[in-house]
Amino acid sequence: MEPVLEVKDLNISLKEGCNTYKAVENVSFSIGKGQTLGIIGESGSGKSLTCMAILGLLPADVWDYDAEIVLNGKSLPFRDNKAMRGYRGTDIALIMQNPMSAFNPVMTIKRHFEETLAAHKNWNKNQIKAAALEMLSQMRIKNPETVYNSYPFQCSGGMLQRIMIALAVIMEPSVLIADEPTTALDLTVQFEIIKLINQMRKKYNTSVVIVSHDLNVIAGIADEIAVMYSGFIVEQAPAEEVLNSPLHPYTAGLFRSRPSYSKERLSEISGQPLSLKQRNSMCMFSERCPLKGEGCSNFEMLAHKVSDDHFVRCCAKEMTKTSA
């Protein structure tokens, strides 16, 4: 199957004076039509940077980046802000983490819909309103007319997140990027939001990239899972495989720290990830790794292919494989 979105060798570094610090390295993935890729990883692992890079939204005066990003067979001009404008919102839509600050507080929801659609389509206000109300009711908003005419500060976070999904899906994009769409919300609302995203994916056959540091969110929706750590995808495979037989010690640790209904004590991964400036040529995870051994101190985070669709960046796994 032809992939809808393909990211090849994404490298992002932070520019600071004459120094550069690598923030995201060799990230590659592809998503098929109607498929969901879940990216999981703790804070600072480069998930948001990866999403913003796809949309060409990283300010060039702060970030240096390079990749080949292919959308529906065409290479994306991600460096060209003007050219990217035509893709943003229409082909690739974004759902952000904090709905409370994403909407402009001085503009009604109506104006948000109007300006978004006016940027891409030649619709008049009545057409826009009809489409928006229809979309809002699909988001199970009971009084779409009232919500349409209200200001963002009159809506709850969960409500705004539904509106944001409506605003994204209304253009029927081929890719929907949801960067931690539930982090700022109540637990009860989180589930609802994930369900809505999944429904929209099915309805419009959209490909979804969903980012989270909550395994429950990812496990429930993703077809494929990429685990990020310190700017690298340390393990990537179909969801089933990652969930049932995680290979990277970090992935395994994540699963152990996942709260469940068993009486077992919640075990966390101890320690802190490295900040951008601390990163060097050893395995990024080695300081916290339970399997730390000889090879870890000069491991260049190479990808080791376990099978056709499963790879892992861990020297312990590489050793066992080669020695076997």
Partner: peptide
Amino acid sequence: RSTNVLYARARGLKEKRVFSAHTLRNSMI
């Protein structure tokens, strides 16, 4: 640098509109 300006850009608005309706408008407050 605000989130709502980033979101405006992510929705594909023209740079002119992002500036006048979001950045400048909110900065006048």
